[in-house]
Simulated scan of single mutants.
Amino acid sequence: MDCAWGGIEAGGTNFLLAVGSGPGALRAEESFPTTTPTETVARAVQFFKKQGGKKGLTAIGIASFGPVDPNVSSQKYGFITSTPKKGWAQFNFAGFIQREIDVPVVFDTDVNGAALAEYKWGAAQGLDNFIYLTIGTGIGGGGMMNGKLMHGLIHPEMGHIPIPHDWLADSFKGSCPYHGDCLEGLASGPALEQRWGIKPSNLPVEHPAWELEAHYVAQAITTYIYTLSPQRILLAGGVMEQTQLFPMIRHKVQDFLNAYIQAPEILAEIEQYIVPPKLGKKAGVLGAIALAQKLKL
């Protein structure tokens, strides 16, 4: 049997599972809502057992919502740690899957997984330094620096950076239970819904919500450009399905930078610098498979 890898994209709203080796080579896929850890991960185990379990899989990669512990030397490697998602804090995610399926398991953030997929098959091919930012139920960021996935003390938490909040223009206090008006608290999907009283997908294109959203996202991107100097920035997630945001964000980033960064990618080619992912909604689960493929077995 050819090598087959399992992938789990564990989102705060849904789980997406797949078995295969890359885009166009997935032999099985399944998705379902994220409920309790016991119920949700048991469904994932059942899926992989139907695909042959240990006999049918080389390894399983998990790309998970967080915060998580991705340090392989840590006693809590593979745990979801301080998440505000009810019931999931301090859950030994990787350990549960490894114990039930008995194959090697590799674990990272959902955004790092998606970034790896885009590096291998998508919009970040050929780059050594880039950011993958997802804006949806939460806001998370990952990517690569010098050809390696971003890790450090734990992993990047780009969604929780403080950004300037103009209280005269926006009186919303923010939705983040930890920080109030951090980037996630001001610009995530739930923040949009709480501020305007309607789901973001139902807001019309001309609604003032999008101008404000572009403003906050562009502020964050400007900070990332100054601190990390990425070669490209990929913007994903449910909020970014509002494609009118892309030109607004690009324009505001150029305004905020004010030609201080003298790079043609920003000054003249920004349409190729701030871009959507090429793999779309499958970037996360393909990234989980790519993580599994990185294991030295």
Rank of each mutant, 00 (worst) to 15 (best):
Q125V: 03
P104L: 10
F107R: 11
L57G: 04
G66H: 11
F107Q: 11
G122A: 02
Q90W: 11
P84C: 10
V105A: 05
Q75K: 14
G138Q: 03
T58V: 08
K85A: 09
A63Q: 07
N112Q: 04
V68T: 13
P67G: 04
E118C: 00
I131E: 13
G136F: 05
S73R: 15
V111S: 07
K85V: 04
K76Q: 12
T58D: 03
G61E: 04
E100M: 08
A117F: 07
A94V: 04
S73Q: 15
D102Y: 01
I80D: 03
A59N: 07
Y77K: 04
W121L: 01
G56I: 02
Q75Y: 00
Q90C: 03
I101F: 11
L133S: 12
F96R: 07
P104F: 05
G126M: 00
E118V: 01
G95Q: 01
P67A: 09
G78D: 01
G66Q: 09
V103W: 05
G66E: 07
T134W: 07
I97L: 15
A89K: 15
G66F: 10
W121I: 04
G126L: 00
V72K: 14
P70R: 13
G113T: 06
S73H: 15
G56C: 01
V111C: 11
A59F: 05
G78P: 02
S64M: 02
Q75M: 00
S73T: 14
G113N: 10
W121E: 08
K54Y: 00
I97E: 11
T134H: 09
V111K: 05
T109G: 13
N129Y: 08
F130T: 09
G141W: 02
F93L: 13
D128F: 04
I97M: 15
F130H: 14
Y132A: 03
G78Q: 02
Q75L: 09
A117L: 06
G53S: 07
G113A: 10
F93Q: 02
V68N: 03
F79A: 00
I135N: 11
P70G: 13
L116Q: 13
P67T: 10
Q98T: 12
D102L: 09
A63I: 00
I139T: 10
K86Y: 06
K55M: 03
R99Q: 14
G61T: 04
A94C: 10
I62V: 14
K86H: 12
A63L: 01
D128H: 14
G56L: 01
G113Y: 08
I131K: 13
I131P: 10
G140R: 02
G66C: 09
T137Q: 11
V68G: 07
F107V: 05
G61L: 00
E118I: 01
N92V: 00
A63M: 01
A115V: 05
L57D: 11
F79I: 03
A114C: 01
G66T: 07
V72Y: 00
K85F: 05
A114W: 01
V68D: 00
G138N: 05
K120V: 08
I131C: 15
F107Y: 15
R99I: 00
L57A: 10
T58L: 03
S82H: 13
P84W: 13
S82C: 04
Q90N: 15
Q98N: 08
A115K: 11
S74C: 11
F96G: 00
I97H: 09
E100W: 06
I101D: 14
S82T: 12
T58S: 14
G141Q: 05
G136T: 08
F107G: 09
P70S: 11
F96W: 09
K86T: 14
W88S: 02
